[in-house]
């Protein structure tokens, strides 16, 4: 087990190191996320009551698009420089590579979300300290990373990768997006987290199912 984690960790470290040196993903995706949030705050009156009802949707629209952008960049970097071949030649199982890439993308997405969340709460005049929102974001982002990593791998090998990833990703991510929007709505309206229990359970089930399924199917997505 610890040997498995060590291998996964090595792949995660590779991605972190490359990110530290290029600053390719986190910065650009963060700027993008903030821009989306700013456009929404222009589109709706931030003082109105309606914004409370809409804010969950706005947040998850921004995070969904940001997530896809980050995933696509992370996989494109591997295919463009041919380093995916190198990765596949490593003496590890395919699901180790999947877990490593997945965890690194998850980490970058969480960093972006952690930075964008305060900006969102301030722009929309919401309570600034909402720790339970972090839980929803963490759970939903795991689901995004699980299906996003395998779809980004597929999309990176097609002719129209920018358009292919959303076409593959969004339909499948619908359960997570719905549940995350609903759970965020519950939290923002100040109700106790237990009201959102069934939504959190759906996200948890989605995460578990698609982590296993994607890790298993990853082999068929990278095979030459």
């Amino acid at each position: 087990m610890s040997e498995y984690l060590g291998k996964v960790g090595a792949i995660i470290w590779k991605d972190i190191l490359s990110e530290l040196r290029t600053k390719d993903i986190v910065t650009s995706v963060l700027v993008f996320t903030v821009l989306v949030l700013v456009i929404f705050s222009f589109a709706f009156e931030p003082e109105s009551e309606v914004i409370r009802l809409l804010s969950g949707g706005i947040l998850w629209v921004a995070f969904t698009f940001a997530g896809m952008l980050g995933l696509s960049r992370s996989m494109a970097a591997e295919t463009d420089k041919g380093s995916l071949q190198g990765l596949l030649l490593c003496p590890v199982d395919r699901d180790v590579i999947f877990m490593g890439k997945m965890a690194a993308s998850l980490l970058f997405m969480l960093l972006v979300e952690a930075a964008a969340m305060p900006i969102f709460l301030i722009l929309f005049n919401l309570p600034v300290f909402l720790p339970s929102l972090a839980l929803v974001a963490l759970m939903a982002t795991i689901g995004f990373a699980a299906i996003g990593t395998i779809f980004a791998t597929i999309a990176a090998n097609t002719k129209a990768r920018e358009i292919m990833l959303p076409i593959l990703f969004i339909p499948v991510a619908v359960p997570v997006i719905i549940a995350a929007v609903k759970a965020t709505g519950v939290i923002i309206s100040g109700e106790p987290l237990s009201t959102a229990r069934s939504w959190l359970l759906i996200i948890a089930a989605f995460d578990a199912i698609f982590l296993v399924l994607s890790a298993f199917l990853f082999e068929f997505a990278v095979e030459e």
Partner: peptide, 20 residues
């Protein structure tokens, strides 16, 4: 191969969407 992966993921996903 890609399409087969999409079909299998979709097959698992549709019931979850229904429940959600």
């Amino acid at each position: 191969r890609y399409a087969a992966v999409v079909a299998i993921i979709g097959f698992v996903d549709v019931p979850i969407i229904y429940l959600t």
